[in-house]
Write a protein that binds this DNA or RNA. Structure first.
Lengths: 361, 361
DNA sequence: CTGAAAGCGCTTACAG
DNA sequence: CTGAAAGCGCTTACAG
């Protein structure tokens, strides 16, 4: 860890520390001679400027913080990837943090990022707001919310309007004759949890379907709660014949539980999940999903943040969602025998037939 | 960004900067009176010590860097999660970077982490070594390799020995009568790519199976190369009747391609993939996998790194692998009709039958 | 237990 | 174009 300092580079180059600094940071006020001498000295010593010291002088750090609510959620893994790629194009490196859907861990990361003086933070907030988040805003550290927002906080954001996709999904299921649609919801402490639940409730009413509150299970966006939701909903005296699940991780848990119970997707039970994860298309039957563009979300988040860093106050962006129909929602209400396992199966829809969708993909 | 400094805290508390610093960093040489006055002043001003300045003085930064080769690979997403949790237990925050399987991006992150003076780095190296990695070692920055190693670099590491799992897989397929096993390999520039390929080659010989070099396709651990591998292998005049895929992302691409071609897993073609990803158990038929413990790997990596940070020179750790048999590898060689799609299907093995495995899980 | 002072590695007005 | 010097926000011997 005996790091080389600019002093040693300057000495080897035979110039002052100031001149070395100028050359190293690309200041044009340098002679070609000192430029080449400093450059080769730095190369010879494998000099890496101490970012801490540099930042201390008030310069930009060219680092962004991205705090996602759960790295293991493929949606956020994809988001991390697109944010990172977009940031690199603008010369920024992305420090990724994982809140693990826990507010205390989020706050810890936020404090770390604040004290490390990143130039800005892209945050998928967990919970309803915290001192750390308020502190972020109060300090006017450039911040952008992504995927989720926090009520009452005036921060530019990129979110998905799930309404269209959820409405399409409910209609699609209603047309197939389903009247009792189970809903495994995200937590109501998160904006997406609330918004998607509200859209579901509205769509159910619009289509004249059962508004039985027992059809809604409130999960926490983690796989285990998807399993619990299936357990609860299929245990009802009048179980749903179709299931809408508010995110991919809960969908994974739900599917695992359905497998264990011998419930056949698209035969005994129709299912649609929010989030278009690559893997969902590979299931057999393939899973119908409500799709939104994680690539657009990531790129937009970086765009907005760079504007904020440059002193702008960009408007928030809302991205669309849409239903992609695959075989998992092929079953009609009358064919559904959810919970009754073991009946000799009609084979699930063939894979080739599973690609009839609302849009091409 | 007008951050509060310790000077202002000291002023409000009516003590010197030195005393404020002592209180804030838990130095016992402080009076109860100044302790309480500084504490309340800091709270009132929402003071966050500038980590840069603190680090500049030579103290530990309590930050770890974790550089994974691809965040979108569920294996590495899981690894990130376990590393993070283990690090938190020891008071460290983890700065996560994504090399995206590209050496240039890896080097960029490495430079960033070096210049930010993290206390240590856990690295899943991409490629065969680079100046940045050599620089890391030369500077004696505490470093640990995870999952992969680099030949000739004497760095403590945690890796999986894939040999046992791969041998079990090949034997399992040989017992079912398969003589032509296709192998979609990882890149030979990575240690896991080489090791797994070598284990495959050895097992093929040991079991007296076809060593036709056309049965091996060299991919790059990304999904697209799994698709390309299926295309190449099933296009052979004598296609394989079973497929072994060296990582989860290539398996995803392979499965997608097989779907498109109407090849039925576990019926027309047997398949086993390296990496036990939660989703693989949900496929229908469920995918047979070679499993290794990402949790052990993450925890061990943190353990080793902390030892290195404390000046130790811990021995490298090698973790075991094992085969988990599920329905995707149920087909025998005689039942296989790979490439010949469209034959009326016998229904895939029922989910309940898919859980007979070498170990319980 | 406390304060004044030096110094971590850099950058940037300020003179020249 | 260049160098000496001040200073970013903190910590830590050094005296007291």
């Amino acid at each position: 860890m005996n790091a080389i300092t600019i002093r040693e580079v300057a000495a080897l180059a035979g110039v002052s520390v100031a001149t070395a600094s100028r050359v190293l940071s690309g200041n044009p006020a340098t002679s070609p001679a000192s430029r080449s001498r400093v450059a080769s000295a730095a190369a010879e010593l494998d000099f890496r400027p101490n970012a801490q010291a540099r930042a201390l002088r008030g310069a930009r750090t060219n680092a962004l913080g991205l705090l996602v609510s759960d790295v293991r959620n493929p949606f956020f893994a994809d988001l991390a990837h697109t944010v990172e790629q977009a940031a690199i194009l603008h010369g920024y490196v992305t420090l990724l943090g994982n809140a693990n859907e826990r507010a205390d861990q989020q706050d810890r990361y936020l404090d770390t990022l604040i004290s490390r003086r990143v130039d800005g933070i892209i945050l998928a907030p967990v919970g309803a707001g915290s001192d750390s988040i308020r502190s972020l805003i109060a300090r006017e550290i450039p911040t952008v919310f992504v995927d989720r927002t926090i009520a009452g906080m005036d921060v530019p954001s990129v979110t998905t309007d799930g309404t269209a996709g959820i409405r399409q999904a409910v209609e699609h299921l209603a047309v197939a004759g389903h009247t009792r649609i189970g809903y495994i919801s995200g937590p109501q402490a998160s904006s997406t949890g609330r918004d998607r639940f509200a859209a579901f409730t509205r769509s159910v009413v619009e289509n004249g379907l059962s508004a039985d509150p027992a059809l809604v299970y409130f999960g926490d966006y983690q796989a285990a709660s998807g399993s619990a939701g299936v357990h609860a909903l299929l245990g009802l005296r009048e179980p749903p014949t179709a299931l809408l699940v508010a995110d991919s991780l809960m969908a994974v848990g739900a599917i695992a539980s359905l497998h264990d119970r011998g419930v056949r997707l698209g035969v005994d039970l129709a299912m649609v999940a929010f989030d278009d994860i690559e893997w969902f298309a590979l299931l057999n039957p393939a899973l119908s999903v409500i799709s939104h563009s994680v690539a657009d979300m990531g790129r937009t988040a970086v765009d907005l943040l760079l504007q904020v860093i440059d002193g702008g106050t960009p408007a928030s962006v809302v991205l669309p969602s849409e239903l992609i129909v695959r075989a998992s929602s092929a079953s009609s209400a009358s064919s559904a025998t959810a919970g009754a396992a073991g009946t000799p199966a009609t084979p699930p829809t063939a894979p080739t037939a599973s690609h009839n969708s609302v849009r091409t993909h």
